[in-house]
Amino acid sequence: MKDPGKLGAQRKAVGRERILKDGKLEKVGGRQMFRNLKTGDVETERTITIRLPNGKFANVPSFNPRTGRDYKTEGAAYRGARDEGYTIKSYDTIAQAEAAAGSKSRRLGQELRKRGY
């Protein structure tokens, strides 16, 4: 089956394969779905909570499915999100940022479970 991905950078998603359905990329919440080959888990994006230079907190991708990049440090993840044009929403406290990340994760997880993943 031909891989319909349009971004060559996605091939850099080492240790992951894109999930296809009927020959098309499977998406949830507008995000491409990947299977982690090591764990078997389905991933759409992985984020970390960081402290911004202004003292606020934000959730930024540590694995970005649009580029296939894995960021190993908070600084690299922040620079990657900024350089890739992400809108970085900030929160006053780490608890608020983590609550927002948890809510998003639960919402995506519910959708994945509905689809049998």
Rank of each mutant, 00 (worst) to 15 (best):
D3E: 09
A77Q: 02
L112F: 01
R69T: 06
R106D: 12
E17W: 14
G30R: 13
T93K: 11
K21Q: 15
Q110C: 02
T73C: 08
R46C: 03
I88L: 14
G29S: 13
E98H: 09
K12Y: 09
E17F: 11
T44N: 08
E111I: 01
A81S: 05
D3V: 02
D92L: 15
R79P: 00
Y86E: 05
I50P: 06
Q10V: 02
G75D: 14
A58V: 11
G15Y: 02
P65N: 05
Q96V: 15
G30F: 14
A81D: 09
L52C: 12
P4E: 08
V60D: 07
N64K: 05
K12G: 04
K89V: 12
F63W: 02
T67V: 01
V60H: 08
K38F: 11
V14A: 13
N36E: 15
D92F: 15
L52H: 13
N64F: 07
N64C: 08
K56Q: 11
L37M: 08
R82G: 06
A13Y: 07
T67K: 07
A97L: 07
R66M: 10
V14R: 15
L52R: 11
D41P: 01
T39I: 07
R82P: 05
D83E: 14
I50K: 04
G116L: 01
R18G: 00
G40L: 00
R46I: 06
T93S: 12
K104W: 03
T39F: 10
L7C: 07
G116A: 06
I19C: 00
